[in-house]
Amino acid sequence: MRSVSEKHHIIPVWFFVGVLLLVYGVLIFVSGLAEWSNPPNTVLAELHAPVWWGGLLVVLGGVYCLMFRPGKST
């Protein structure tokens, strides 16, 4: 029978959130840099939203991954 303590070893959902935000942040940030000199045909493209939004996701995702990584005692 599964012990109760095993339940407490479920990786927190926040870690998965962090992984998703981190990966998405990297992809969006890099695609923003790639289109820097040739921005897409969208309104306010000159603000380069993918770069700073992707950067924000990377920072938040990184913090979540670090804080809730498997094996870290809470």
Binding site: L27, L44, A49
Partner: peptide
């Protein structure tokens, strides 16, 4: 979404 978001942000 299409008005403001280019590749990457649109996918998100």
């Amino acid at each position: 979404l299409a008005r403001y978001c280019g590749p990457g942000l649109l996918g998100l």
